[in-house]
């Protein structure tokens, strides 16, 4: 079903009624699984992901390939001077409309695993945990665009919950452009946070930045687009990442405040600098 982009120019509203620079509603929780070292649940619009982090721990027996791991130079589990980040993504069959069966060897999933692992490894202080492994397992419950961004955000939150030292949040979001590559439309507006329908029809990219800096951890573009539009999309994307970071930060602080209120943690144990009001 082609997306009707003609109405955009009239009302400057997108198919779901957002304006060009609006994110979808992001709803996130941390510490959702009591048994895990770190866990999170994140919704970006209708994209819903769950993340569980185990570790840093002793590396278990190695199975199959090493796709989706980062860190440990050479990847020789347990022999490296850095901790190895191993990401495993499970996409539930019911997560999208077409109920496509994806095997374990699906290259798209493997690529996403590797991207999330390498993006996290950039922020986590993996050099503090030699000979160990950080296991990140991500479950996709519902897909509606910006999947990679949601995965990165959820993984970041779960790592914060697990208490693994990290430089800053790795926040991600997508950006697109209002007309397809075929239309040589220079005035095309950039769009922030694309949903599934927009992703199918319009060129877009996923950006992940380190904290609120302009430094790009991951940049993935999978569609054909004129090089002149890259700048606009990247600017909007980086700006979106800053907004996402604020939201993630709020979630973490809110949880921290509640935990103090409930008496789970004492105020002042490692939360000195936290502004609790």
């Amino acid at each position: 079903m082609p997306l009707d982009t003609s109405t955009y120019n009239l009302a400057l509203l997108r198919v779901d009624g957002r304006r060009w620079n609006e994110l979808r509603r992001i709803n996130a929780q941390i510490r959702t699984q009591a048994a895990a070292d770190g866990s999170s649940y994140l919704e970006m619009g209708h994209t819903k992901v769950m993340c569980v982090v185990t570790g840093p721990s002793e590396p278990g027996p190695r199975r199959g390939g090493v796709v989706g791991s980062a860190g440990g130079a050479g990847g020789g589990g347990g022999q490296s001077k850095d901790a190895e980040v191993v990401v495993n993504i499970v996409i539930a069959g019911f997560s999208s409309v077409d109920r496509k069966r994806r095997g374990r060897g699906d290259k798209r999933t493997l690529e996403m695993q590797s991207t999330v692992a390498n993006a996290l490894a950039a922020s986590l202080h993996i050099h503090l945990f030699p000979h160990s492994q950080i296991n990140v397992s991500l479950h996709v419950l519902s897909q509606d665009g910006s999947l990679l961004a949601a995965l990165i955000n959820a993984a970041t939150l779960a790592c914060v919950d697990a208490g693994i030292p990290m430089t800053d949040y790795v926040a991600a979001c997508t950006a697109g452009s209002t007309s397809t590559y075929a239309a040589n439309d220079e005035s095309a507006d950039p769009l922030l946070d694309m949903n599934h329908q927009e992703e199918q029809e319009l060129p877009g990219l996923t950006v992940a930045t380190m904290g609120d800096s302009d430094r790009v951890v991951a940049l993935v573009c999978e569609s054909r687009v004129q090089i002149s539009r890259l700048e606009g999309m990247l600017v909007v994307g980086v700006d979106g990442c800053k907004q996402v970071r604020e939201i993630l930060d709020r979630v973490v602080r809110e949880k921290g405040r509640r935990m103090i209120d409930e008496g789970t943690v004492e105020k002042g144990t490692g939360l000195n600098d936290m502004d609790v009001d």
Partner: peptide, 19 residues
Amino acid sequence: GEICQIAKLGGTPVDAVAL
């Protein structure tokens, strides 16, 4: 001048302008 694909799959962050 049509970009078909960009892949910076993680790694140390790089300034957006440099990219």
